[in-house]
Amino acid sequence: MFKLIASLLALGAATSSALAGEADFYGKWQIREVVMGPWHDPSHPLADDDSGPRIGQIVEISRGKMSGPNLLGCAPVEFRVDPVPYLGMFEGGLSVEDNNKPSSDEVATARRHAEALGFTAEPVEALTHSCSEIALFRASATTLVFGLDYRIFTLEKQ
């Protein structure tokens, strides 16, 4: 009986931790910067750069809802928080050199690019949601980043 109770308490603690991680992403976030991702091939320029008008827009995350620019906003939504190594961020996009060729040391390359974006610890908390394939990565308590096309968007907590 004691083992059953201990197991249930451990399961409850794990569930609470997962929900607390999701809640850490809640709030209003403003898009403050957009830069090209390291996976962008400069020899193939983008036909359309629509990132400028997105700077200053607000993304709001709350339980079961994300509102903001059409690329992020949706409801109802299911969130999930997962730990992601630098190498797995942006669908592996940090593991390429600027010339878009795989590096001989992908882990070191991914670390270098992640640190340049402000990440200081691995794994990184990633918030994914059921409306799109976009993952929001926590760089700090006040900074999130996500990738879209060849760009990395930085959001600042309001």
Rank of each mutant, 00 (worst) to 15 (best):
H40I: 01
H40Q: 15
H40D: 07
H40E: 03
D41P: 01
D41T: 07
D41N: 09
D41V: 04
D41M: 03
P42R: 14
P42N: 11
S43A: 13
S43N: 15
H44A: 15
H44Q: 13
H44E: 14
P45Y: 04
P45N: 12
P45K: 06
P45Q: 09
L46R: 12
L46N: 14
L46I: 11
L46C: 10
A47P: 07
A47D: 12
A47E: 12
D48L: 10
D48M: 07
D48F: 04
D48N: 10
D48Y: 06
D48V: 12
D48A: 11
D49E: 11
D49K: 06
D49R: 05
D49G: 09
D50Y: 13
D50I: 00
D50C: 01
S51W: 02
S51A: 13
S51D: 03
S51Q: 04
P53D: 10
P53C: 06
R54M: 11
R54S: 05
R54Y: 10
R54K: 12
R54E: 10
R54Q: 12
R54I: 04
I55L: 12
G56F: 13
G56P: 04
G56V: 02
G56K: 14
Q57D: 08
Q57A: 06
Q57Y: 00
Q57C: 05
Q57M: 08
I58M: 12
I58T: 15
V59N: 01
V59G: 06
V59E: 00
V59L: 08
E60K: 06
E60D: 12
E60M: 00
E60G: 03
E60S: 09
E60H: 04
I61R: 01
I61K: 02
S62K: 12
S62Y: 01
S62L: 11
S62D: 12
R63S: 15
R63P: 03
R63E: 14
R63D: 14
R63V: 15
G64S: 11
G64F: 15
K65Q: 15
K65F: 03
K65W: 11
M66D: 11
M66E: 11
S67A: 11
S67Q: 06
G68D: 06
G68N: 07
G68C: 07
G68Y: 00
P69L: 02
P69Q: 05
N70P: 09
N70F: 15
L71M: 10
L71G: 05
L71N: 08
L71C: 08
L71F: 02
L71I: 09
L72D: 05
L72H: 01
G73P: 04
G73S: 02
G73N: 02
G73Q: 01
G73A: 02
C74M: 09
C74H: 05
C74G: 09
A75S: 13
A75F: 10
A75W: 11
